[in-house]
Every structure is written in C-alpha cells, then in structure tokens.
Amino acid sequence: MSERPLDERIDELVVGLADEAETEALEALCARDPAVAARVERARLRYGALDDTADTLEIPATLWTRIAGALDAPVETAARVRENVVDLSTVRRQATRWRATALSGVAAALLLAVMLGWVLMATPQPSVIAVLLDAGGAPVALVEGSVDNTTRVTLLERAQVPDDRVMQVWTKPDDDGPPVSLGLLAEGNSRTLSLPGFPPPHANQLYEITYEPLGGSPTNLPTGPIHGVGQAQAPVY
C-alpha cells in the first residue's frame, strides 16, 4: 500500500476512500512531516467546495442543549488528564512555604536524598517494557512500567532536543482514550516518573516521547515532533 504515490493516498484520504489503517498511517505521517500535512490541507481545500453544495438545514433548537449537555458529561479519562496538569502557581506557593519553614537547605537536601533513595529502592520489577523507536526505526529509549505506575525511562542515546524544547513522556492508559503525560525529561536524562490514579500498565500500551515547548505541552496533549514511540510488552520472568 505504502508504495503507492503519496498524492494518490492523500486524495483517497480526502475523498473518504482510505480505510481506517491507512487513515491512521497518513495522520501519523502528517504529524511527523508538515510538508505532507500541507499537501493534505491543499487537497482538502480543493474538495471542500463540495461541502458547500449541501443544503443548509435548520438547526433544531434542541441541538445546542444536547451539545452543552455532552460537554458537561464527565469524561473520566479527560478529567484525569486535567488532574495531571502541574499547576505551577501551586508549586511556587509550596516552594515559598518551604522557605518559610525553619528547614535549612541542608535538611531539605537530605530529605530529598532519602526520598529519592526510597523511590529508587521501592521501584518494583517492571510489569511491561517498551522499546521506543525513532522515525528511522532505531531504538532511542527503554520504558519499564510497574504495577504501582512508576515508569522508568532510560534513554539509549543523547537526544538532539532543540534549545526551546523539552522531552515529554506520554502514554495511553486507555487505548481509546487521550494520551496522558507521564512527565518531562527536563534535564534530557533518564528518569523514573510516577503517575498515580491510573490503572496499572498493560501489554500493548502505547508510550511516546515528544519534543514540547519548555514547561511541557500547553494543551496537555502531544503537540511536538516525536522522539520515539513504542508499544509495551509484558516481560517473561
């Protein structure tokens, strides 16, 4: 299929003849390559004139009520995604409170060291492992997820992160749900991340690292180029 001319594949996508797998493949291609996205956009605009040939129907009075009702309906996964947003103002307030206490920097550092040690020692055996591959198929990171939702991310090469970007780790706890941020690799180094409140990772769960604006994705969904992506497997012990 993929040996067919890209223009032909794009046309079939736009007129609605592409099947689901092909649609996903092309959408992934668009996300990686703005030039492809621009070609798809051009094709959409060409055919878009046909949308304007449909009748303009009267909007039923109930439609807005139905839409607004659906917006109000709780979306479990989306709500959890929002909980996962780091509110910087809260963090700053907490930092001020820290300073306000009599704890010296040394004591705080000691506490952090102890906590870090505890977190590292307490990390159980991974229940899933994913090898993330870059666009060329080369392995760039190893992801080990544990039942307690700690996720060890080991970078397998020094990533060429643009100066104004940071690596952000994502997963899809629910295959059909939105991607959820596991956290940032702000230093560009390997890290253990924790994501409480989600079901334990499962085989075939998707993991991804993208380059996001500093501070992380502004939409809390992946927006940037993909560093690596892979599906988890359950290791055999």
Binding site: D51, D52, A54, T56, L57, I59, W64, I67
Partner: peptide
C-alpha cells in the same frame, strides 16, 4: 462556550446538511 455556540449558529446548518 459562547464561541462554540457561535460556531454552531454559523456552521451547524451546513454541517447538518453535509451529514444528512
């Protein structure tokens, strides 16, 4: 939300036509 409502008022009738 008022922006979504404006979008519905402006485009909803045509979208309904396309879907229909």
């Amino acid at each position: 939300r008022s922006a979504l409502k404006t979008l519905l008022d402006a485009e909803g009738g045509r979208m309904l036509g396309v879907a229909r």
